[in-house]
Design a binder for these strands. Structure first.
Length: 553
DNA sequence: GCCGTTTTCGGCCCGACTGTTTTCAGTCG
């Protein structure tokens, strides 16, 4: 996968639309970008081994462009459009609710060429003059600009991790460095981050030179700053320290401000002067149990540590069941067999295929006939014995009135039903809450899928009383999902923490649409850990039989 | 630009929702 190329393809698609060219050509570019991302295709390897021709959705034209990109770093069609479309116009399409068509007409008719010019035009009531726009459009655009501004400078966790890990490995390869580690809120597994903070042990001078050359950083008292990460351009800082101070500095730059203030208030500052081998030793010295980085968020956790009541956090090795994945039966890229074998390769014992239900027609949702056909295939695969048990599941849309998407006679043929809202996001808080509560009361619902519908840095969730929903899940013994997709991470860790307090069990689900996405589960585990969840809180840790027993109840 | 057992042209995911209209275009999932 190459993040730059994915961005190039997406921007090319948008610019084709902005230029008023063939919209289907635009779609081909956009879908190629999704294919590369979802299937984690390494284009450099694919070009070298000539395997791009096997990828559905990438034909001769795109293959040529990608090959050129691999050899020269340039993509001809993208370069051509860049000359034609002002970058500010492309930026306007990043606003939610504004697509290429509207931006094109705003650009042509009002002459606005950037988000700030658009903002001015809205404030001066200019949009009312053009056909298709009115007062309300101006308001929604201004809101979208606000949302866009607040997300600027923030980055999704998986991108931050990818770049931070690359920087850490780079540092470790350099002679001047003995150790390097990710600190900051990324180490605490924040959902999104605005900066990477890296601690390195080394001789400030020579180490600094290496970094300055490579990343154009500037040094100030052993702290090198002003860098931008290699792929996503995330601001980053490298703090260089010596062996004696390494562990304290790692600790001091990991915890949240609230945590660190409370920590010093409790334990004084003497520990800062003592050298430690690792953080575990630091905690031993203070005579309290080790507080995992993900938990170093609030002051409360220190009290729990003092009372010896810290949770024993869920770990990847506890996981046995992979739930909520898609296949080529709906909008996934791999067959059920490939997905199940992918889960097996990651050490899982059972796998629930949960394709989209019939109302999600845009995603190839399954008609009743196709449900039956899929069940036959699952039976066959299980007869064949792939070494991993496959469960029959469905991701059923929660219809606008709270009903599930099939009659009971069909619903009862599934082992699990993940119920999710995919439409009608704008109901009032009361009716949205009632709708989801109704779905939870349905005896066939097993798991509530992405419970608030948020998309991080892009869309707030729908308006809903999430605590009332968690309370209802508690009452009816329903499971709620932590969606491990880093664009969603829904439930939030705070909501997941509340769910634990209410005794609601959590499923950690990758919502994978390709084999490569199965590993997203580990990011979801990070969120669960941040919420303080333990093995016993997570249904994926049950054996297949225990799990089925739980959901059949 | 992609795809193909009606294949080299002529289609291309489809329905809900929104804000604008007074029958529809654009956006989203």
């Amino acid at each position: 996968m190459d993040a730059n190329l994915i961005q190039i393809l997406e921007d090319t698609a948008t610019m084709l639309e902005l230029a008023g060219e063939n919209p289907f050509k635009a779609r081909a570019y956009s879908s190629a970008a999704h294919i590369l991302e979802e299937q984690q295709i390494d284009v450099f390897k694919s070009v070298k081994e000539n395997t791009l021709r096997n990828v559905a959705g990438i034909g001769a034209g795109l293959r040529e462009g990608i090959t050129e990109y691999v050899h020269t770093g340039k993509f001809a069609e993208y370069e051509r459009l860049l000359k034609e479309i002002p970058s500010g116009v492309l930026d306007m399409t990043r606003l939610r609710g504004l697509g290429a068509k509207k931006v094109r007409s705003l650009h042509i008719q009002l002459g606005v060429s950037s988000i700030s010019e658009l903002e001015q035009a809205c404030r001066k009531d200019k949009l009312c003059d053009i056909k298709g726009f009115g007062k309300k459009s101006q308001e929604t655009i201004l809101k979208a600009i606000e949302m866009w501004r607040s997300s600027q400078g923030n980055f999704h966790q998986h991108k931050a991790l990818m770049d931070a890990e690359a920087i850490v490995s780079f540092l470790k390869e350099q002679k001047g460095f003995k150790a390097a580690e990710i600190a900051g809120d990324l180490r605490r597994r924040a959902e999104t981050v605005s900066e990477l903070y890296i601690i390195a042990e080394g001789k400030s001078k020579e180490a600094g030179e290496v970094l300055k050359d490579q990343f154009e950083l500037t040094e100030k008292n052993g702290i090198l700053e002003g860098g931008h990460s290699p792929v996503f351009g995330i601001p980053f800082v490298v703090e260089i320290t010596d062996r004696k101070n390494y562990v304290q500095r790692l600790h001091e730059t990991t915890g949240s401000e609230e945590f660190l203030i409370a920590f010093r208030k409790q334990f004084g500052e003497d520990f800062l002067k003592k050298p430690f081998k690792n953080e575990e030793e630091l905690y031993e010295f203070l005579k309290i149990p080790y507080i995992e980085p993900e938990l170093r968020e609030s002051a409360d956790i220190i009290k729990l540590a003092l009372q010896n009541k810290l949770p024993e956090l869920i770990e990847p090795k506890h996981m046995r069941g992979m739930l909520h994945c898609h296949s080529t039966w709906s909008d996934g890229h791999n067959s059920i067999r490939e997905m199940a074998l992918g889960a097996k390769a990651l050490g899982y014992e059972y796998f629930a295929i949960c394709d989209h239900s019939r109302t999600a027609s845009y995603a190839g949702g399954l008609t009743i006939e196709r449900v039956k056909a899929q069940h036959e295939e699952v039976d066959k695969l299980n007869d064949e014995d792939l070494g991993i048990r496959i469960l029959k599941g469905i991701e059923s849309d929660i219809l606008p009135d709270g009903d599930l998407d099939y009659p009971d006679a069909i619903l009862k043929t599934f082992d699990i039903v993940v119920a999710s809202v995919h439409s009608s996001f704008t109901q009032t808080r009361e009716s949205q809450t009632a709708r989801i509560i109704k779905a939870l009361e349905n005896p066939y619902t097993t798991i509530l899928g992405h419970a608030t519908g948020r998309i991080l840095l892009s869309r707030a969730g729908f308006d809903v009383d999430i605590e009332a929903i968690i309370d209802t899940a508690a009452e009816f013994g329903k499971i709620i999902e932590i969606n491990a997709n880093p664009y969603r991470f829904d439930l939030s860790w705070q909501n997941a923490k509340y769910a634990k307090e209410r005794g609601v069990r959590i499923a950690i689900n990758p919502d994978a649409h390709a084999v490569a996405e199965l590993e997203l589960t580990n990011l979801g585990i990070g969120i669960a850990r941040k919420a303080g969840l333990e093995k016993s809180d997570i249904v994926n840790t049950l054996s297949c039989d225990e799990f089925l027993k739980l959901v059949k109840k």
